[in-house]
Computed example of a mutant assay.
Amino acid sequence: MIYTVTFNPAWDYVVFLDSLVPGEINRAKHESIVWGGKGINVSGILRELGAESTALGFVAGFTGQALEAGIEARGIHTDFIRLPEGNTRINVKVKHGEETEINGQGPVITEQAIRELYEKLDRLEQGDTLVLAGSIPGCLPADTYERILERLMGRGIRMVVDASGDLLLNVVKYHPFLIKPNHHELGEMFHTECSTPEEIAHYAGELQKLGAENVLVSMAGDGAFLLTAEGTTCQIGTPKGTVVNSVGAGDSMVAGFLAGFDRSGSYEEALKLGTAAGSATAFSEGLADAAAIEALYQTL
């Protein structure tokens, strides 16, 4: 079973405008309301690809109840912890020219609630996969990811971390099965820029030396690079399409990679399906559906 953790899920209220005039009433051309959160996005794409997962995390208030119900209505199993105070956040995304985002703060995760999460994670079994994605809320210790990986280390659980900066650097010593920085994040971790295939390969190797097993680097329009646990490298371009949405593309790549690897045991197939899933979401207004992913997969 694949488990995803989303510490601070959200409703994304996306508004499309023809024009934006500050200080005036602006009317939407059209709008959408979708649930979000990096781990939840991973679970959503896994569902589209026929892979089962359980979404873990924290919800609160009436917005949390609605989010949980909406996710389950899509056929995704959830096991959220309900917080006693606050509301699951609402993020406002204004699309007019460049995208503008206003992200809500979210509820406070109590010590009791984080203990409940640890208890759920303690029930994971050998062969399960745990996906930790995104940032850690300010109400939790900065080393929360490290505590989780240390707690589960040595139990045969595949651990996947999609994060950036020190948050990612500090967990590679626990030998995660997969990490997925983008090429900008990869360079920032080593205080440099990664703009060539050689540079990306070199610094992906540095992360592997620090303990990561598989290093998947997304490179936007230039595709993706994979350094496998076996020491082999794979690189793939991106299919043709128009990018209309950057939200969830990286999460979709992680989901596609895991689904592809579980299906085939092949790193090349995992990279191919991951690239198709990530690109399909980038070419969609929301998370991609199975048909869109399959169509792009056939072009790679």
Rank of each mutant, 00 (worst) to 15 (best):
T4E: 05
E101P: 00
F283S: 07
G274C: 03
Y145R: 01
M219E: 11
R147M: 13
N87D: 10
R151C: 04
T129P: 02
A280G: 04
L287H: 03
D122S: 15
Y174W: 15
E150Y: 03
D79E: 15
G37W: 04
V21G: 01
L168R: 09
N182D: 10
V171S: 01
E199C: 01
Y3N: 05
S218D: 02
A28L: 08
A55V: 08
G223A: 10
F58W: 11
G39W: 12
G134C: 07
D289K: 03
V14F: 07
V34A: 15
T275E: 05
G265D: 06
E125L: 09
E101I: 01
A249N: 06
I71D: 12
I25T: 15
G57Y: 04
G57W: 14
I25C: 06
T54L: 04
H191A: 14
G138D: 12
S218V: 11
G205N: 11
S284N: 14
A69W: 10
H191W: 03
G86K: 08
A270M: 10
A290K: 14
G106W: 12
C234L: 14
L149Q: 06
A288I: 09
W35V: 04
G127Y: 03
G61T: 07
A55S: 15
R155H: 12
W11N: 00
G274I: 01
V160C: 06
G97L: 13
G241E: 06
S164R: 15
Y297S: 02
V172R: 00
R123S: 12
G86I: 14
L83Q: 03
E198N: 02
D222N: 15
L17F: 06
E85A: 13
A28Q: 07
